[in-house]
């Protein structure tokens, strides 16, 4: 897939900010790349106290690409909407690798500090699995969870992106949490 070159990127961003949603599609490879790089560098630092915030990464990617130009909040929400899916993929992939790596670590190697208590890989994978199940039951609801959790959208923004009412978003989010809590906890 050919990457848009620098001038194209600016033009695309301009078009997108003026309301051209198709321009966003063309931006996506760039977005993905940006997100992936950010996630990789962020996840590489295994500090104790490290709380993983996908939303922070998406925010950062967003800022880098748009350079903080004035974009309407609706457009921002759409950007994040797509980024949410990407973020999920990236994090889940990383979590899978971590799980595999832990099994492989040979005993005498100077191990990287196992971040006790804040190793999120198992939770993340469980969440992903549970979300897939939820998608079978109610795709819209799963999307709501994805948007809120991986992109950190507010209720309004989620409503905008998913094309539903804020009331529905609240309901979906609340009931999804209950279901996920049960599925993941089991």
């Amino acid at each position: 897939m050919a990457q848009p070159t620098e001038p194209d990127l600016t033009a695309l961003l301009k078009e997108w900010s003026e309301g051209d949603r198709k321009a966003l599609d063309q931006l996506m490879p760039f977005v993905y790349e940006e997100l992936r790089k950010l996630a990789a560098s962020y996840l590489r630092e295994e500090r104790p106290n490290h709380t993983l915030q996908p939303t922070a990464l998406v925010n950062e990617a967003y800022l880098r690409l748009t350079g903080q130009k004035k974009v309407t909040w609706q457009n921002r929400a759409h950007f994040f909407g797509i980024a949410a899916q990407m973020m999920r993929r990236i994090l889940v992939d990383h979590a899978r690798k971590r799980q595999a790596a832990k099994r492989d670590a040979s005993a005498w190697k100077v191990a990287t500090t196992e971040v006790d208590g804040s190793d999120n890989a198992p939770e993340l994978l469980a969440l992903d699995r549970a979300l897939e199940e939820l998608e079978q039951l109610d795709p819209q609801q799963a999307r709501v969870v994805e948007l809120r959790f991986f992109a950190g959208l507010t209720v309004e923004e989620t409503a905008e992106v998913a094309g539903i009412s804020p009331r529905t978003v609240k309901r979906d989010w609340r009931t999804a949490k209950a279901w996920l809590a049960r599925e993941i906890g089991a």
């Binding site: 709380t51 993983l52 939303t55 208590g117 804040s118 959790f149 950190g152 949490k177 809590a181």
Partner: peptide, 17 residues
């Protein structure tokens, strides 16, 4: 669960235990 964030109803959730 790690999906909860008690203070902000309607605000973005955080992945934190």
């Amino acid at each position: 669960t790690f999906l909860d964030r008690p203070d902000e109803e309607g605000g973005p959730p955080r992945f934190e235990i």
